[in-house]
């Protein structure tokens, strides 16, 4: 499957799962499980940064369309996409790994821990900005902090489960550097 088709399928599937499965699970009023932004975590390394942000905006805006509250998720996704290249730059182990592999995964990031750190920090950024924009109108700091931390934990757990169930085979591409 070509990269483009694969990503389009992912986009649709993640949005559908988010809207029709996760949004209907009411764990607790403090905890909102999110998984749809995994799409941005998995976007290929080589994509232009502005293009990444535009794709992230499209993803967030689609979810906002279902939630009837345009802006919130789009803003969080754009910020997430902006910070992604920085984190990859810091965490990727050897020179040229982002050329040898197609997209971020436990293998291409050089181990499970760096990948989890990558996912964890980005999840935290996404949740913090999203809940901050929501809480902005309500103004309760502790509620915001606890909600962010709990939701991040649940989302990370979901990401680990998804990684374990759908193992993505990353091929080592030689002669690409």
């Amino acid at each position: 499957m070509s990269t483009l088709v694969k990503n389009i399928v992912r986009f649709i599937l993640l949005i559908l799962v988010q809207v029709f499965v996760l949004d209907r699970i009411h764990l607790h009023y403090m905890v909102t499980p999110y998984i749809y932004f995994l799409f941005i975590l998995w976007v290929p390394f080589q994509l232009n940064r502005t293009a990444q942000m535009l794709i992230a905006f499209a993803l967030g805006f689609t979810l906002d369309g279902f939630r009837h509250n345009p802006g919130f998720h789009a803003a969080a996704c754009v910020l997430l996409a902006y910070f992604r290249p920085f984190l990859i730059g810091i965490l990727i182990p050897q020179e040229g790994a982002d050329h040898n592999y197609e997209e971020p995964s436990a293998k291409s990031m050089g181990g499970f821990m760096p990948y989890m750190l990558y996912a964890g920090v980005l999840t935290l950024i996404h949740h913090a900005w999203l809940f901050f924009l929501e809480a902005w109108q309500l103004g309760n700091i502790w509620y915001f902090v606890i909600k962010t931390l709990l939701s991040t934990a649940i989302s990370l757990l979901l990401i680990i489960i998804v990684e374990l169930i759908f193992s993505r085979k990353q091929q080592f591409r030689t002669n690409t550097v």
Binding site: D64, N69, P70, G71, A74, A75, L133
Partner: peptide
């Protein structure tokens, strides 16, 4: 995005 939030 913030414009959208405030506006809608």
């Amino acid at each position: 995005c913030i414009y959208l939030i405030v506006h809608y």
